[in-house]
């Protein structure tokens, strides 16, 4: 079941206007400068902010349709959302955070082990490192067995070594998850490493030129050939 997103939203300096699609088992990276509208897109998908107009659906399940006045609240969408930081419940231990929305409580232990946080089970979020917290947040999101996974700059608050490690872990994990994943990042290298599809957003629009500029910097040889996308990633444009 693919995730289909069409939305327009008036923002202070420009209008966000995008059409995106993400198939199960694929990771779509949204890259672009800060304030380009990336987070606005994932917040709309999560149901945390209602766009002016548009359509969001997961397969036959319509989450938002401005024409038909359909708007499903976030709690009914069945998704996992990992924010940049500080979203674990401070009054709960790591284990209880992961179990917070677990569909199958027996899987909690399994997830703790999978993310290497089993030993932290009894600690509180304030007592563990930033990297550990993001692992817990990922485990928490997956425990609810989401139909879509949204990652909003999940590693950007981490030091570089931890970030690299978590990127590698996510890359491995991704293979086992058969769901659409949208990953917002301003780190193009992270996008190149993890994504199946990369879309650049600049001032609310899909932008080839932004991606080109950066890829020219990153891979000058490849850029000489044409559009500038030098890896096996392809930009996805509908």
């Amino acid at each position: 079941m693919g995730l289909e997103i069409k939305l327009t939203q008036k923002l202070p300096n420009y209008e966000l206007d995008v059409v995106l699609r993400c198939e199960p088992g694929r990771l779509l990276a949204l890259v672009g400068p800060s304030g380009a509208g990336k987070t606005t897109i994932v917040r709309a998908v999560a149901g945390l902010a209602k766009p002016d107009q548009g359509f969001i659906a997961l397969g036959p399940e319509v989450w938002y349709d401005s024409k038909a006045s359909i708007w499903l609240p976030p709690q009914k969408r069945g998704l996992g959302y990992v924010f940049q930081e500080f979203t674990l419940f401070p009054h709960l231990t790591v284990e209880k955070n992961v179990a917070f929305a677990a569909v199958d409580k027996r899987r909690v232990g399994e997830l703790l082990a999978m993310f290497g946080i089993g030993e932290l089970a009894a600690r509180r979020p304030q007592e563990i490192s930033g990297g550990e917290r993001q692992r817990v947040a990922l485990a928490q999101a997956l425990a609810r067995e989401p139909k879509v996974l949204l990652l909003d700059e999940p590693f950007s608050a981490l030091d570089i070594a931890t970030r690299k490690q978590l990127q590698a872990e996510l890359k491995e994990l991704k293979a086992s998850l058969n769901l659409p994943i949208i990953h917002v990042t301003h780190d193009l290298q992270e996008a190149m490493l993890l994504a199946d599809d990369i879309v650049a957003i600049e001032a609310g629009r899909l932008s080839h030129s932004w991606l080109d500029r950066f890829l020219v910097h990153a891979h000058p040889a490849g850029a000489a050939g044409g559009r500038g996308v030098s890896s096996d990633k392809r930009t996805f444009l509908p």
């Binding site: 979203t87 929305a101 609810r144």
Partner: peptide
């Protein structure tokens, strides 16, 4: 209380 905690709760299925 950080409003993001409430957003997380909503995304995780809490009314």
């Amino acid at each position: 209380i950080d409003p993001r905690l409430l957003e997380t709760a909503a995304v995780l299925g809490c009314s």
